[in-house]
Write a protein that binds this DNA or RNA. Structure first.
Length: 742
RNA sequence: GACCGAUUAGCUCAGCUGGUAGAGCGCUACAUUGACAUUGUAGAGGCCACAAGUUCAAGUCUUGUAUCGGUCACCA
């Protein structure tokens, strides 16, 4: 701006002379917001921004791992939730967004154990429970600030005064109480059942934490008496003394169920029993198999059906037991060749398919190959009837006799919890139908220890340790999803009957990636319906996965990771947020490229310059001269209002991608390209009334546009808002300004 | 094997309850130092995967086929 211009337009803040630079504002503004206390709804009420009678709107943030760093998935989650939160806060609702972090027991412990082993060459047994826990806790504590500060960088308007950690005192009490209640209702039991054992991490793993990885291995055909059986794992076969075939398989019609035959096997002759069971698929291999009930889920189920013996062949560390004879004590990974050699010499090998493709189960949290074992563990019974005393769940009257499974179905079936996009409802129901009892005990040390104590034959279960001498607490800890399942209400202070719990539960929305629907969404529904008789949330909004521009999963090994923090440094938070929202239809994966982020940085500057233009050309406005608007001015206002209506309704339908696009489109293509352009003539013209009217219209367009964009681009809009003359604003801070009326 | 999704402009995708196709990016041409480390204007570009059906009318509804992707289950 040259000198003569600045004389004409005296009141324009100097900041507008330069392009908008996000880095100059973002930290400052976030601090201003945080210091204002308005992230906390109680402060909003106290300062008169929100009415105490206002409708509530609450979201609990899916807690990131304490030891994690921000990735694009987090960034998208934070952007989406912050948009919803900011929109509803501006709507005047009593709005709460609760932050937290998750201990991610298994992942964190294995990370720390890994570090210790690398640096000190020590395993956990050598470190000891107490010392290891101390170190893990320190590690978690140390790394938590990283993820929390990165969360702030996204502009997230979280109520930090309500920060929760899955292992803090309040949550500890919630977890203990939950366990004890379920134990007393017989919904938690201890039993010997087949579970997924991770020999690397020395712990059980739930069904959902298993990841199947495709592998090519040789497939061996062995002579087993008159039969040929196939296997990829010769090292498990020592004790196999049942031979199973389909009852209708005509090839084996001469053999009767229960009939015994003598066969020569790896370590000498054994007596085999014929079992007819439909689990044997005549199409696979020879249609005949031997079973190893201790180390295979399917075999275990067959054995259960027919009351067969189960023998352990492999121990917890992967070593063969005495049943393996001369091979006992050797590790299963190393012993195969020797076994095959012996079988070859006994002429038991018929043939080998070298390339057999099959899936092996691995622990998705740590990577070990799963070895099923029968072990005494704690389980949640999902099919056991109980009386639900208090219920607000649609379709389930108080006092109903139900199972946990039925509760989980009812919550969604009768609309208590609505899942969006709709297709995920079916995914959810499918999973529940196949649900088996949930193994909740883990043999790791980091986590909530099971509140059960033993003394001889006595068992005690309680929130507090029993009094008296000689009680020993169960060594196991709880599956991390057990405590995560309580999250919507443990964060609100349960089991105490807090004001927060009464006010904000059920929460309004749960927003999360669809990859976590089983682990978490379903478990929260289970826990909340059981413990509170309430659904945990009224709406579930599933976002897709963020992928690279070619649609590939982002991964370090592919080198295609776009780091949100880098994007924020280069283009600003607003641009990063917008790039994660626009073009991302709910539940659909979305490709992201750096160019997209860059594009939205230009938009930030566009708004900046729109503001500069309008402020420059309205500095001489004297509102006393107000005259009625022209037809065109009315039209502009009408169009503005219809944009407000559109944007609002799209946000309320969770179509943020449409809301964002409409706001973007309005501001750039309509306000800037059409309205400002045509206004130039009027503003520089001689018709003062016309000019005056248009100035007022432009100011309204500006303030309203800033409000519309604020949820999407909180920083640049607030930065501009702070420069606006007081008389133009209904609030000092845009964050708590009133959402415009349509 | 079961279920789910996708198939629309060069690319990424919108098109809700059926009425002869839209956005962003990219591309081409022109203009512009302007409120704008640019922006604006104009333009090219689509038998909406294929086939049949319902209908006065179908990207839009039904059925089937093909290809791609995902989830779950099984895998002796």
């Amino acid at each position: 701006m040259n000198e003569s211009e600045s004389q004409n337009k005296p009141n324009i803040p100097e900041v507008f002379l330069n392009p908008y630079n996000p880095a100059d504002y973002e930290q400052k503004l976030y601090k201003m917001w945080e210091d204002s206390g308005f992230f906390n709804p109680d402060v909003c009420i106290k300062k008169g921004v929100t009415s105490p009678e206002a409708e509530t709107f609450s979201i609990v943030l899916p807690p990131p791992n304490v030891t994690g760093t921000l990735h694009m998935g987090h960034a998208a989650m934070l952007a989406i939730e912050d948009i919803l939160i900011r929109y509803h806060r501006m709507q005047g609702k009593r709005t709460l967004w609760i932050p937290g972090t998750d201990s991610a027991a298994l992942a964190t412990q294995s990370k720390v154990e890994g570090i210790i082993f690398k640096e000190e060459k020590k395993r956990r047994d050598e470190i000891g429970r107490e010392e290891l826990l101390k170190r893990i806790t320190a590690f978690a504590e140390e790394s938590k600030d990283t993820i929390l500060n990165q969360t702030r960088k996204m502009g997230s308007s979280l109520d930090w005064s309500r920060y929760a950690y899955t292992l803090d005192d309040t949550r500890y009490k919630a977890v203990m109480t939950a366990f004890v209640n379920m134990y007393k209702d017989d919904l938690i039991y201890r039993g010997d059942r087949i579970i997924n054992w991770d020999p690397n991490m020395q712990t059980t793993v739930s069904d959902d934490e298993i990841e199947y990885v495709e592998k090519t291995d040789p497939f061996y055909y062995f002579k087993y008496g008159p039969f040929t059986i196939g296997t990829v794992r010769p090292e498990t076969k020592f004790g196999d003394k049942y031979v199973v075939m389909h009852p209708d398989d005509v090839r084996y019609k001469e053999y009767k169920h229960g009939q015994t035959i003598e066969v020569e096997w790896i370590n000498g002759p054994i007596t085999a029993t014929i079992i007819k069971d439909e689990a044997a698929d005549p199409e696979i291999g020879t249609g005949v198999m031997t079973i190893t009930p201790w180390h295979s889920t399917v075999d275990y189920e067959i054995a259960e059906r027919h009351g067969l013996d189960k023998e352990q062949v492999i121990d917890e560390r992967g070593l063969l037991l005495p049943i393996a004879g001369e091979f006992a004590g050797q590790h299963i990974k190393k012993v195969r060749a020797a076994i095959l050699e012996k079988m070859q010499s006994k002429n038991l090998i018929e043939r080998v398919d070298e390339k057999y493709i099959h899936n092996i189960a691995t622990n998705s949290r740590g990577g070990g190959t799963i070895e099923p074992q029968i072990k005494r563990q704690w389980f949640v019974a999902v099919n056991k009837k109980f009386i639900l005393k208090h219920s607000e769940i649609p379709g389930v009257p108080s006092g109903s006799e139900v199972t946990l499974k039925e509760l989980m179905v009812a919550a969604v079936e009768h609309g208590g919890t609505d899942i969006f996009p709709e297709r995920f409802k079916r995914v959810y129901f499918n999973w529940i139908n196949n649900l088996r009892d949930w193994c909740i005990s883990r043999q790791i040390w980091f986590g909530h220890r099971i509140p059960v104590w033993y003394k001889g034959d006595e068992i005690y279960c309680g929130v507090e340790a029993p009094t008296g001498e000689g009680w020993l607490q169960d060594h196991d800890t709880l599956d991390t999803w057990f405590s995560s399942g309580l999250w919507t209400f443990s964060t609100l202070g349960w089991p105490e009957k807090t004001e927060d719990l009464k006010t904000y539960h059920p929460t309004t929305v749960l927003e999360t990636g669809y990859d976590i629907i089983f682990f978490w969404v379903a478990r929260m529904i289970l826990m909340s319906t059981y413990h509170l008789g309430q659904v945990p949330f009224k709406n579930v909004y599933m976002h897709g996965l963020i992928r690279d521009e070619k649609g590939k999963k982002m991964s370090k090994s592919l080198g295609n990771v776009i780091d949100p923090l880098t994007m924020i440094d280069k283009y600003g938070t607003d641009a990063t947020r917008l790039s994660l929202i626009i073009g991302a239809a709910p539940g659909n994966d979305m490709p992201l490229s750096e160019n997209k982020v860059k594009g939205y940085k230009n938009f930030g500057n566009k708004i900046w310059n729109i503001s500069r233009f309008i402020l420059t050309h309205t500095a001489d406005l004297d509102t006393k001269n107000f005259v009625s608007k022209s037809i065109r001015d009315e039209e502009i206002i009408a169009q503005l209002k219809s944009t407000v209506a559109d944007v609002s309704s799209e946000i309320e339908k969770f179509n943020l991608y449409l809301a964002g696009e409409k706001a973007y489109h309005y501001v750039w293509s309509e306000l800037a390209d059409v309205i400002l352009e045509e206004s130039k003539l009027i503003l520089n013209g001689t018709n003062l009334e016309e000019k005056n009217s248009r100035q007022i219209v432009l100011l309204e367009c500006l303030t309203t546009s800033l409000k519309l964009l604020h949820p999407f681009m909180p920083f640049v809009t607030e930065a501009i808002w702070q420069e606006l003359p007081v008389e133009m604003k209904d609030s000092d801070m845009l964050m708590v300004a009133k959402w415009p009326n349509a």
